[in-house]
């Protein structure tokens, strides 16, 4: 503060003398304004844009959910909890919830376990570590649309490689899209493929911070590698594990692109002819942008929001617990 106070104290009537001084009163006012208000100007764009295009829509979703509301025609009247009653009585909602849950367990759970395992492998002394690291994160960089399309082909009934291999080993070909379990397994494969390497690098970064003496001490005590991993490495990186579990839960609850593009029959968002792999996000897309039923879609979005909060909270608690037991 003292710096800006200085010129003001030196205000003087004589013009020629004032010219030699570093700042005129006017400049000093600007500089005081600058010091006090510029920080707000710097953060203003973020808050304005984020408020208008992210927070406001999210809150307005709640308001819409209490109305009959069509995307184009607009408000059709208050219905209170009507949409919520309809939603909880809607078999398609429960179906989508089940599928999302299964994908969360198999896909998200699978990707995190695979990541932990991969990180343990990458954490060894390796030659060419940069190459292996780049290799595992590559799938994450590639567009999800392209990847899902490739996998949809790999899981194709007549032409897919997975079926060719199955047949080679002596099993029947599977129509992967046709029923819930096979479709969920296939979509989980895509999800695991995309995310495992990414989370593996995050785990790896944390593992490298674990002091090496701990491992050596345990090794001297004759602990097995497995034991060291579960009793020392995993508890040591607990905050990272908890963070990744919560983050991947939030992402997993909103799974859309993989199952959407896995559906080779079309892009209506139904997830197969019997909705055998329709997720909540796909159902939201179908209701909101295929049927233009904004009220109902908003209700679903709001319920998803609460579900995400609850499931992330549960996973947060669980992962803290599990990762800390030795």
């Amino acid at each position: 503060m003292s710096v800006t106070e200085l010129p003001r104290a030196a205000e003087a009537p004589e013009a020629p003398a004032a010219r030699r001084r570093p700042r005129s009163p006017w400049r000093s006012r600007i500089s005081r304004f600058d010091l006090r208000y510029t920080p707000y100007l710097f953060i203003l764009p973020f808050f304005v844009i984020f408020g208008v295009f992210a927070v406001y829509p999210l809150l307005y979703t709640g308001w819409i959910s209490f109305h009959e509301w069509a995307i184009i025609e607009g408000d059709q009247g208050w219905t209170g909890l009507g949409n919520y009653q309809d939603l909880f009585a809607d078999a398609y909602f429960w179906n989508a919830l089940l599928n999302t849950g299964l994908l969360l367990v198999l896909g998200t759970g699978g990707e995190l376990l695979a990541a932990l395992w991969l990180a343990a492998v990458l954490n060894r002394k390796l030659s060419g570590s940069a190459f292996w690291r780049a290799g595992v994160v590559l799938p994450h960089v590639i567009s999800v649309v392209a990847v899902s399309l490739v996998f949809a082909q790999l899981f194709g009934y007549q032409t897919g490689i997975f079926n060719d291999v199955l047949e080679l080993v002596g099993f029947d070909r599977i129509n992967w899209q046709a029923n819930r379990w096979s479709a969920i397994i296939a979509v989980s494969t895509i999800i695991i493929w995309r995310w495992a390497g990414y989370f593996a690098l995050i785990f790896l970064a944390a593992m490298q911070g674990v002091p090496h003496e701990l491992n050596e001490a345990a090794m001297l005590d004759g602990a097995s590698k497995r034991r060291i991993f579960w009793s020392i490495t995993v508890p040591s990186i607990r905050p990272t594990i908890v963070f990744c579990v919560v983050m991947s839960t939030i992402i997993g609850m909103q799974t859309f692109a993989e199952p959407q593009l896995f559906d080779v029959q079309g892009t209506e968002g139904t997830g197969g002819s019997d909705r055998q792999f329709q997720t909540l996000m796909m159902y939201l897309y179908e209701k909101g942008f295929r049927e233009f039923n904004a009220g109902y879609a908003a209700t679903l979005a709001w319920v998803m929001f609460l579900l995400i909060a609850v499931v992330s909270g549960i996973n947060y608690a669980l992962s803290r617990r599990i990762a800390s037991k030795d």
Partner: peptide, 30 residues
């Protein structure tokens, strides 16, 4: 340094966790 800096930054951190995609119905109407 500015008044309310910490509170505002906490707001930023919290909003980073928001699944903002779920607001797409009103966003579309906007």
């Amino acid at each position: 340094p500015f008044r309310g800096r910490n509170a505002l930054f906490v707001t930023v951190v919290i909003t980073a966790m928001l699944p903002t995609q779920l607001g797409m119905i009103p966003l579309y109407m906007l």
